[in-house]
Every structure is written in structure tokens, then in C-alpha cells.
Design a protein around this nucleic acid. Structure first.
Length: 478
RNA sequence: GGCCCCGUCGUCUAGCGGUUAGGACACUGGCCUCUCACGCCGGUAACACGGGUUCGAGUCCCGUCGGGGUCACCA
């Protein structure tokens, strides 16, 4: 049977970093096995679902490059891929279960149940749905009154399944509630909607966060009741905040960790950089730290997944992004410039491609993100260059004027400013240890920068001469 | 609390009965050097604890402790 997996986010917020990892693992599994990757929108929580969230999720998936074969915007043979457009399917399945005596109508109201729940809480007892309507028949139904459809859970025995990463998981049935399949308005709840869809969409493996293992038994029971074979399951360990708490937005902010994929994009991460951090979170292939997409796909396997939850490490995430971005093997020069450009333009600069490319070549190895790259490249294009007052005060002193003047004279004699020519022309006569600081502030306005020969080369002769003239004037004025 | 799961350096992890317990990030000493990075060489640092099984346990079993997940007409 061909492999079919899905990623099924609910549009109740941005795409969470943990969700992105789940999506990645599913995508890798599908690509690895030449299968189909389905994107399905679980928007049955009408109170929280928004069009804006839907948009953010789609955009994030595209930015990450996790393309789907079936789903919203691309369609497919099992559509629609949005649950609110599939209500008839759930109603039909639910009716069938009721007819077969595997589910039943429950007329107890939410208020009524909430009251019971509060009572249980007050008595410090666990609330358990009293089987109010479990054993009633259609003769007891109240015409015109709202009802939900509940699953008739087994009262004894146990349910188990073989998880691809955790192995066999078995849980007793006796504490299973008669969970709700269909709300009184006909909208399905998560467990039911997901199972009905997974059956009709012929999903063969479900990979998701470990927080879902608890409702897997209920889903297994549902497959059974529906007379459909259950897919395989693969649960992934949780991604936690540095303190071991849930990586919620609030918790993450305390550690300056972005939680939405769009935030990583805005912070100047490259999709491949982020993906490389994520793929090594809960999965490994020996000691290999970074992968090209091709390698990820070829090497991915659930046997490489770990079972222990992990804590997010922003420093490492940045380091991995840095490694991926600066390496031509994983990020081409052209790709780097294409992604960096918007961040440069956001600073009000508009260099042409050739000029930008030269500057990025010079700073690339020292920028962890495109935001840092844009900052590092700023003085190449800003006129007049912005000079750091502290650096000016310490380096552009009167004594530096003659040194800068001599540098200006030497550069003026040259035709091309490539690094080799500059080294040949200047190194014999300049003591860079002494001339460096002043030249650096003159040319870049900063106390730290890439090597001066490289900087001059990327700056171009005209700009170099102009900036030296400015600096000489500043230095002379003291 | 019930049920389920997990436990190797600070962090991500390798390990699948016999290893000086390896790598990466972080931290740190040094080299390189016009500064900052990059790069290179080196260092600190881990098998939660207690019982078993075994000639031999990080690897297998049990217990303890610790951590996490979940108990909705949310997903």
C-alpha cells in the first residue's frame, strides 16, 4: 500500500515551532517513501479558528518549503481538505455508529454536565461521565431537543497499539469516557473528525506530538467501530522551554525564543537553517549535525527518533542556522542574496545585485541570520556612512590624519581594488596594527569589521577615497 | 490524584552486554590576526538512585526518585 501521511493543524493561531517539526517529520516520511503528503485544516473549533491563522499556516508551510500533494489551495481526490466543509461525512459516520449501537444520542446539556463536573471537583473525585443515556433507545429520544452523539466505550479490557517510536503502548479501557463524537450543532470533535478523515483520506501513518498518545486508544477503538484498519502511529517527544515547561508563547518569551515560524522568518532565519535545527530535535542519524534536504529525505527513519522530551536551545538554533547559511553546499550565493535582500531594503538601502553580492560575500561567514547580515552590510551602501562616535573619538585622532592621507594616496594610484592588488600595494608600507583602527573607522564607521582589504575591495575605489577624505577631515579637526 | 510516557555532559544527541562513554552547541585556554568573525588545536563537563540478571551492565528486569503528557459539546 502506498504511503500517505498528513499534517493537520487547526487554524487557531500561527504555525508553532513544534507543529513545524511535526509537519517536517511527516513530510520527510512521505518524500522518503515516495508517498503522498496531505495537508488538512482542522477548523472545527469555530470559536478560535480564523482566516488569518489559516493564512499564517499556509504561508509558513510554503516558506519552509514543505509542499503538500493534497490539501487546501492544491486540491486532490479526497477533498475538500477543510473539516468544516466535510460535515456531512461526519454526520453520516456518526449515524451509522448509532444505528449499529456503537454510539448513542445523549440529551444531557452542557450546563447539566458542568454542574456534575463541579460537584466531582468539590468532592476531590475525578469526574466521570455518568452513563445517563448510554443504555437508552430511540424510544427515549426527545423530539426537537439538542443532543450530542457519544461513543459507547468498552467498560473493560484494554486497548493497545504499536507505536513506531515508543513501541507497544497499552491502556486499560475502564477509565475511558463515553467521549463526544458530534456536538449538538453537528460539528465533530477532534478525535472523531480526525479518524473519519484519516479513514476516507486513506492515511497509512499518523505522526504527531506525544501529547496525542492519550487519545490514540480512543481513536483505535473508533477505527475498529468504523470497520477500518488503523494506520500506524508515530509519536514524537515534546519540545519544551529551557526550564522544562511547555513551550508556550509566554514561556518562550522569557527566553527570547520565537514560537511561530513566521517569527523565525522575520528574525532572518533561513528555512533550511530552521529545518536543520528541528530535524535534529528528537531525531538523529549518528553524529551528523546538518543535512541538505536531499540527505534529510534519504536518511529519515522513525527508528532514528528518540523518546525523551527535549528543551529548546536558542543558541544552538542560531548556530545551526549560521552553519547552514554560510555554507555554499547548503545555501548558494544566489539564494543567500535573494533571502538577505529584503532585510537590507528594510533598512532603507537599495543596492544593485552585483554590489550587494560582493558585500554579502564579505560578511556572510560572520552573520548568524539575515538580520545580522543586513546590519553587517549596512555601511557598504549608506551615504554618508554612519560612524560610531565612540570609535571615532578613539581612532580618528589628529595623529591618524597623515596615516590616512598616505593610505589615500596609495589607493588613488591603483586601478582595481581586488584584495590581492591591495595586499601587494600596501602591506609592505603599512603597519596595519597601527593604521588599522583609523582606517577601519574611516571606511566602515565601526570598531569591528571584516578584513580591510576585503572591505575596500567591496566598497570600490570611489567610495574608499571619499570616506578617507571625510575621515582625514574629522581626524585633523581633532 | 487516575492512566500513559520518559530519564547519557548545562543543552541537542551517539551508544543498541565488553568503549579511555563519542560528536555538536554553550563555556573556556591557545593558535591565526588590522578589529570582529571564520578556521584550527586543547580543556572543563554526563550514564538520576538502589536492587537484581550476567563472567561482564549506560545498554536487560524490578523498585525509588525526578520530569513530562492527559483527564472538555479544545485540538
Amino acid at each position: 500500500m502506498s504511503v500517505r501521511v498528513r499534517f493537520a493543524p487547526s487554524p487557531t493561531g500561527y504555525l508553532h515551532i513544534g507543529g513545524a517539526r511535526t509537519a517536517l517529520f511527516n513530510w520527510l516520511y512521505a518524500r522518503r517513501h515516495g508517498g503522498v503528503f496531505v495537508l488538512r485544516v482542522e477548523d472545527t473549533d469555530q470559536a478560535r479558528s480564523t482566516e488569518e491563522s489559516y493564512r499564517a499556516i499556509i504561508d509558513s508551510m510554503r516558506w519552509l518549503g514543505l509542499d503538500w500533494d493534497e490539501g487546501p489551495e492544491v486540491g486532490g481526490p479526497h477533498g475538500p481538505y477543510t473539516q468544516m466543509e466535510r460535515l456531512a461525512s461526519y454526520a453520516q459516520a456518526a449515524d451509522r455508529l448509532v444505528d449499529e449501537g456503537k454510539a448513542y444520542r445523549c440529551y444531557a446539556t452542557k450546563d447539566e454536565l458542568d454542574a456534575l463536573r463541579r460537584d466531582a471537583e468539590r468532592q476531590k473525585k475525578q469526574f466521570f461521565y455518568p452513563h445517563l443515556w448510554r443504555d437508552k433507545t430511540s424510544k427515549d429520544w426527545i423530539a426537537g431537543a439538542p443532543y450530542v452523539i457519544r461513543f459507547k466505550s468498552p467498560l473493560s479490557g484494554e486497548t493497545s497499539f504499536d507505536d513506531e517510536v515508543f513501541g507497544r503502548i497499552t491502556t486499560p479501557n475502564d477509565h475511558l469516557q463515553d467521549f463526544v463524537l458530534l456536538r449538538s450543532d453537528g460539528v465533530p470533535l477532534y478525535n472523531f473528525g480526525a479518524v473519519v478523515d484519516d479513514v476516507t483520506m486513506k492515511i497509512t501513518l499518523v505522526a504527531r506530538g506525544r501529547d496525542h498518545v492519550v487519545n490514540t486508544p480512543q481513536q483505535v477503538l473508533l477505527y475498529e467501530a468504523l470497520g477500518a484498519p488503523a494506520p500506524r502511529f508515530a509519536h514524537l517527544p515534546m519540545m519544551l522551554a529551557p526550564d522544562g515547561k511547555k513551550l508556550s508563547k509566554r514561556e518562550a518569551e522569557r527566553y527570547d525564543i520565537p514560537v511561530s515560524v513566521t517569527a523565525y522568518r522575520d528574525r532572518g532565519f533561513s528555512p533550511d537553517g530552521l529545518l536543520n535545527y528541528l530535524v535534529r530535535f528528537g531525531w538523529s542519524h549518528g553524529d551528523q549535525e546538518t543535512f541538505t534536504r536531499r540527505e534529510m529525505i534519504d536518511l529519515f527513519d522513525f527508528s532514528g527518533a528518540s523518546r525523551a522530551d527535549g528543551k529548546f536551545d536558542m543558541k544552538k538554533c542560531l548556530a545551526i542556522n549560521h552553519k547552514i547559511s554560510k555554507d555554499e553546499r547548503t545555501t548558494s550565493r544566489h539564494e543567500y542574496a535573494r533571502r538577505a535582500r529584503p532585510f537590507v531594503e528594510a533598512r532603507g538601502l537599495a543596492p544593485d545585485d552585483a554590489h550587494l553580492g560582493r558585500a554579502l560575500d564579505v560578511v556572510r561567514e560572520r552573520a548568524r541570520t539575515f538580520v545580522e547580515a543586513a546590519d553587517a552590510v549596512d555601511y557598504f551602501f549608506r551615504e554618508p556612512v554612519a560612524r560610531d562616535p565612540v570609535a571615532v573619538k578613539s581612532a580618528l585622532v589628529p595623529a591618524a590624519a597623515p596615516v590616512l592621507a598616505r593610505l589615500r594616496a596609495e589607493v588613488a594610484k591603483l586601478d582595481a581594488l581586488d584584495p590581492e592588488t591591495l595586499h601587494a600595494a600596501l602591506d609592505a608600507t603599512f603597519d596595519w596594527k597601527q593604521a588599522g583602527p583609523a582606517a577601519r573607522v574611516a571606511l566602515t564607521g565601526r570598531a569591528a569589521s571584516p578584513g580591510l582589504h576585503e572591505v575596500m575591495s567591496a566598497l570600490g575605489k570611489a567610495t574608499v577615497l571619499a570616506r578617507l577624505d571625510e575621515a582625514i577631515a574629522i581626524a585633523s579637526a581633532g
